[in-house]
Amino acid sequence: MNLELLQKICGLAAPSSGEGAVRDCVIDLLKDVADEIKVDPLGSVIARKKGAGPKVMFACHMDQPSFMINFIDKDGFLRFSHMGKLAFEQIRGQRVVFQNDPPGESLRSVMTGVIACEKIRDKQQASMIHLYMDAGFRSREEAEKHIAIGGLCVFAGETVIDGRKIISPGLGRAGAFVLAETAKAMQSSPNDMYFVFNAQREVDFAGAKASVWTVSPDYAVCFDLAPSHDIPSPEIQQLPVRAGNGAAIKIKDSSVICHPGLIHFIEDTAKENGVRVQFEISESFQSGAGPVHTANGGVPAGGVSIPARGIDSAHPIALLSDIEESLRLALHLAQKPFENLV
């Protein structure tokens, strides 16, 4: 597995609506292997590898949990809104890095800040509205020279890969890595393959909602993370996903019940090729497969997920073996005819 590329894709910064760096990277990777590449109005990348069979869409996303500056006070402290499912405890105390502005322009300087909480008497009452960013400014005027209202930032943090695992604020893009590698490695496909790298997952899946209409696929397989349930917890974990048990074939999450035809097709493909798989049933977790399966009068949809711990935190973690199995599964799926599945 190309760990360098995994590190690169996950290590880029791509706040929702500011996915330029990842978009450029994906286009660069696929420009010589795709028959067509287009960027849609929301900034999603749609890459096609033509084939005679049904239209099959593999979808993933490019963005990550992110923040937008919406207020600068007279002392130069920043207030923000967040995009993505982030809880107070996960945000407080974290370091953030601001996006270069305009996106894609070479680094002028990397600006960082810290998310801190107002001093309030009753600590139990502290909530999102008490959080602010401290980027070391001393006045509104000084801050405004470096950051504008509407400016974007993401969690700061190195993307770390060792022999077993990856930890990265952009881990959600492991799906984009899988898709890019699949598109590059696959031979001719019996399917008309569309590899879709969606913008704005963290804004209610806006990118996926828009691009599924453009592609109008016959079948869709969505690649994303899934929360791994093998974490220390006083409550009994009744859900099945375990990091290290392989690629997770999605049965359901809170936004979709996958089409049985696709679930079986994916499972059979894994068995035929000795890919290690498990099944995903997630609660209070949504995926791009949600808006995709109800689009255009209905799209039979399945999903392949990479188990990750701390999925809604600044430093989610996944095991490399699971990413590798997901990539193997994606590659086999892309080259197998999607025939008579429904």
Binding site: D40, P41, L42, S44, D204, F205, A206, G207, K209, A210, S211, W213, T214, P291
Partner: peptide, 11 residues
Amino acid sequence: ANFHAAHGGAP
């Protein structure tokens, strides 16, 4: 939200 994501996406 709905206009943003409708058929192919619009600003």
